[in-house]
Amino acid sequence: MFHQAVRLALEKDGWSITHDPFHIKVDDIEFFIDIGAERILAAQKAGQKIAIEIKSFLGSSEVTDFHLALGQTLNYRLALKKVAPERILYLAITKDTYEDFFSRQFIQNSIQEYQINLLIFDSLKEEIVLWKE
């Protein structure tokens, strides 16, 4: 759902998109994002390479959405470590999701515990609000 907004935000921020989507294959397992709002982008800026996992958090339960996002992020990070270790993985979420849900103490503790990098974006302005590492 927010794929295009994140892509445009990255381009506005000076990133060059190198893969859309970014396909990962580890051993005999291929990783693809489901068709829809959640996809992986890859971009490169000033010698830095990143991969972006975009999550909408529009399901019926933010907690369930968080469990899915956390699991996917951890699995994608492990896969990247094996096949593209130069890439840093970010979980992209909207500014509203960050302020409303990710501000909760348990979620903050989880993000810190699992060392999840966040890209917070404004979906209406199609701009990056914050990079959080």
Rank of each mutant, 00 (worst) to 15 (best):
Q44M: 01
I50C: 06
R7P: 02
D27F: 15
Y76G: 09
Q112G: 02
A37N: 12
R77Y: 05
A69L: 08
K49A: 13
I29V: 06
E30N: 12
F121V: 09
V83L: 14
R39A: 02
V129R: 08
I35L: 08
I116H: 05
L130C: 00
A46I: 13
D28R: 14
A9N: 00
R39T: 04
Q72K: 12
I52E: 04
T94S: 11
L78D: 15
S16L: 15
K81S: 14
L119C: 15
E11M: 06
K125S: 12
N117Q: 14
K81I: 10
L41V: 05
K12I: 03
Y76T: 11
K12P: 07
G59R: 15
M1G: 05
K45T: 10
A51I: 02
Y90G: 01
K25D: 04
Y90S: 07
H23F: 15
V83D: 12
F22L: 14
F31N: 10
A69I: 11
I128V: 01
D34G: 11
F2A: 11
F66K: 11
N109D: 10
E38S: 08
K125M: 13
I54V: 12
N109Q: 12
D100G: 05
I88V: 05
A79P: 08
A51M: 07
I50Y: 00
F2L: 13
H67A: 13
L68P: 03
D65F: 01
